Simulated assay, not measured.
Amino acid sequence: MPIRERQPADHPRLLELWERSVRATHDFLSDADIAELRPQVRDIYLDAVEIWIYEDAAGLAGFIGLSGAQVEMLFLEPERRGQGIGTRLLDHARGLRGALTVDVNEHNPQAHGFYRRYGFVDTGRSPLDGQGRPFPLIHMALPRDAAD
């Protein structure tokens, strides 16, 4: 299986993948928002979570970041979307943790739809994101036996 744990040398490539993925999927974020987030992702967020990487013969394709059973991040190379990589990463996380939770930006309907198709259900909503910015979040949970 091409899923492995993050190694320290992966850090710069993960940050670059994060930015490419965000620019392709988070059109509600401005360039200034991304510029503000980049050092936080680099210096705090990537180190704060357990990261599993999907890398195959074509290269680094995506990664998932977990904090316990919470999916904190799931990012894919834009050109690799729709190839089942996100599903494989979630399958791996579910194998590790069982029931999962995730917060999805309300302004990212593609991600919301992806998680719903996987079996997550909406459990709540917050008007602000985790940094207190006006980017509402949809809270979702995957029951332990969903997707089985």
Results as ranks from 00 to 15, higher is better:
residue 6 R to P: 01
residue 7 Q to D: 05
residue 7 Q to A: 14
residue 12 P to H: 03
residue 14 L to R: 03
residue 14 L to T: 04
residue 15 L to M: 01
residue 15 L to S: 01
residue 16 E to P: 01
residue 18 W to A: 09
residue 19 E to R: 13
residue 22 V to T: 15
residue 24 A to D: 08
residue 28 F to C: 09
residue 30 S to A: 09
residue 32 A to H: 10
residue 37 L to D: 06
residue 39 P to Y: 10
residue 42 R to I: 06
residue 44 I to C: 11
residue 52 W to N: 13
residue 53 I to R: 04
residue 54 Y to P: 08
residue 56 D to K: 10
residue 56 D to E: 09
residue 58 A to I: 02
residue 58 A to R: 14
residue 61 A to W: 04
residue 65 G to R: 01
residue 67 S to N: 13
residue 71 V to E: 00
residue 72 E to F: 07
residue 75 F to C: 09
residue 77 E to T: 11
residue 79 E to F: 07
residue 80 R to K: 12
residue 80 R to Y: 02
residue 81 R to A: 14
residue 82 G to I: 05
residue 83 Q to S: 07
residue 89 L to W: 01
residue 89 L to I: 04
residue 90 L to D: 02
residue 93 A to T: 02
residue 93 A to M: 00
residue 97 R to G: 00
residue 97 R to C: 10
residue 102 V to N: 00
residue 103 D to C: 10
residue 103 D to Q: 14
residue 105 N to Q: 12
residue 107 H to K: 14
residue 109 P to N: 04
residue 109 P to W: 04
residue 111 A to T: 08
residue 114 F to P: 08
residue 118 Y to R: 07
residue 119 G to C: 04
residue 122 D to K: 15
residue 123 T to F: 03
residue 126 S to A: 15
residue 133 R to F: 03
residue 136 P to V: 02
residue 137 L to P: 04
residue 137 L to E: 05
residue 139 H to G: 05
residue 139 H to C: 01
residue 146 A to S: 14
residue 146 A to K: 06
